[in-house]
Amino acid sequence: MQLTRRDAAAALAALGSGGAVALGARQWQRDSEDPEEADLASDGAVRDAMVAVAEVVYPSEVEGIGEFVEGFLAGRLDREGHGDGLRRAVANLDELGRAWYDDPVAELPPADRDALLRETGADGVDEAPDGSAAERIRYYVVNDLLLALYASPTGGELVGIENPQGHPGGLESYQRGPNG
C-alpha cells in the first residue's frame, strides 16, 4: 500500500509539528562540526536511520517510506526536547550498529537491522523518553515510526480504520458501514 503526501501531512499534524514545517523543505545535513553535539546524530543520519528502521518495522506491503518519513521527521526534529532525544537515540543505535555489525543501521541489510534492533532490547521494553538506551530507541525511533504510520489514513486502512486516533479525519467515516 502506497504512503502518500497526504499521509505524511496527516502524520505531521498528529505528531505536533506546530504547523511551521513545510513538507519536503528540509536540507538533511549529515555532518555536525559541533563537538558539544558529538552524542547527537546529525539530521541526515537521523533521516537515514529512520528510513532504514521504517523499512523493517513497517509492514512489507507499505511503499513510499522514504518520502513519508522525511515528511513527518522534520517536525519531530524541530520539536523542543523531542529533537535532541531523537538525535541521541539514533546516535546510540548507530554506535551499537558499528560495534556489533561494523556499520550504522542505515547501511545494514534489513535482516541485520531487525537483529540489531532486537539486540538493543528495543523489542522487549516499554517506551520511555528518559529511560535506558533500549527504552529511548523504542520511544524515539521504533514507536515514533509506528505512531506516524498507524495514525495516518493509509496506516489505519491497513488495519481497517481509515480515521485512526490522532488523525482529524472528519465525521463521515464513523457513520459508514464496512462496505460504504
Binding site: P59, D123, E127
Partner: peptide, 26 residues
C-alpha cells in the same frame, strides 16, 4: 483496542504487528 495505541506495545513489528492489529481490531 485502538490500533494506533496497540501498535506502540508488544514485541513485534512489521508484518507480524500488522497481523496482530488486524486480528484484534474491528
Amino acid at each position: 483496542p485502538s490500533p494506533v495505541e496497540q501498535a506502540l506495545t508488544g514485541d513485534d513489528w512489521g508484518d507480524e504487528l500488522l497481523g496482530r492489529l488486524q486480528e484484534s481490531y474491528g
